[in-house]
Design a protein around this nucleic acid. Structure first.
Length: 265
DNA sequence: GCCTTATGTTCAC
DNA sequence: TGAACCTAAGGCT
């Protein structure tokens, strides 16, 4: 699930697997061949995530920018690696492990100026310790745009995706259509702190976990195959808190889920 | 095996 | 507003 927690988890993994040593880099699929040739054999100095963006910094000021988009995935193997299967955009091989990247929206060489521009256009990332939530609040508090749209806007908040959007609004009993400027400051502070908590749990656990223990009744009556969530992909099922049927609509071409009673306004 | 669907973003009309 | 990107999992036959 590529929301921000996935990218931060990958950054930590890549740092651990490849950081501080030379990396063999290639593009079996061929769509990153020239970029891969520039960094092949160089030492990976560091990996970090900003929202849903992943950056690999190599010697010689060379930076790889990766965005997974909807489909992108990394897979990992111990060396020696099997021959690439399918469209592998990027293969990185270190001393003990190698990783393949398939289906990303972006995998390209970035300059430091492009990195600066990226950071400048992204809102604060709840997973980053250097994040300033005041920047997000400044935009939200003066906007008539629905909070459900603002939370998904990477210029407002970096790293929040459709699952965290739906779940955080449920946890704070906020209707997705409420205008940003109608959020109270205390309400926003609580929402931000909760995002920091939940998204860091996501990084540690490798999946999105949002259900409070007191609302988790052993999932009696719930479909174990479905995501364990309050509202995300729960349309038509009873709300875990009040039993009302969870609703679904499409907002800005994205699936939106909410409880009409718990999130009445 | 085939069809639908998805956690995201950019671009064209 | 919709298409494109182009992968993989899950549900269905």
């Amino acid at each position: 699930m590529p929301e921000g927690h996935t990218l931060h988890r990958l950054a930590r993994l890549h740092q651990r697997r490849f950081g501080g040593a030379p990396v063999e880099v290639c593009s079996p699929q061929g769509r990153f061949t020239s970029g891969a040739a520039l960094i092949d054999g160089l030492v990976l100095l560091g990996a970090e995530a900003w929202g849903k963006h992943l950056l690999h910094r190599y010697e010689s000021d060379l930076i790889v920018h990766i965005h997974l988009g909807l489909y992108g995935k990394f897979t990992e193997q111990a060396v020696p690696l099997d021959d690439p299967v399918g469209a592998v955009r990027l293969r990185m091989v270190g001393e003990q492990y190698g990783t393949d990247l398939r289906g990303p929206t972006a995998c390209e060489i970035y300059t430091e100026q492009q990195v600066d521009a990226l950071k400048a256009r992204l809102g604060p990332d709840p997973i980053r310790k250097d994040a300033d939530p005041g920047r997000a609040w400044a935009r939200i508090t003066k906007s008539r745009t629905p909070i459900g749209t603002l939370l998904m806007d990477q210029k407002v908040l970096a790293g929040v995706g459709n699952v965290y959007r739906a779940e955080i609004l449920f946890r704070h009993e906020i209707n997705p259509m409420r205008p940003g400027k109608d959020l109270g400051h205390a309400e926003w502070d609580a929402l931000w702190l909760d995002l920091v908590d939940l998204m860091n749990i996501g990084v540690r656990r490798g999946k999105i976990i949002t259900i409070r223990p007191e609302d988790d009744h052993g999932d009696v009556g719930y479909d174990a195959r479905r995501p364990r969530s309050y509202v995300y992909r729960q349309a038509g099922r009873p709300c875990r808190v009040c039993g009302t049927e969870i609703l679904h609509s499409v907002m800005q071409a994205r699936n939106l889920f909410w409880c009409p009673v718990c999130q009445a306004s």
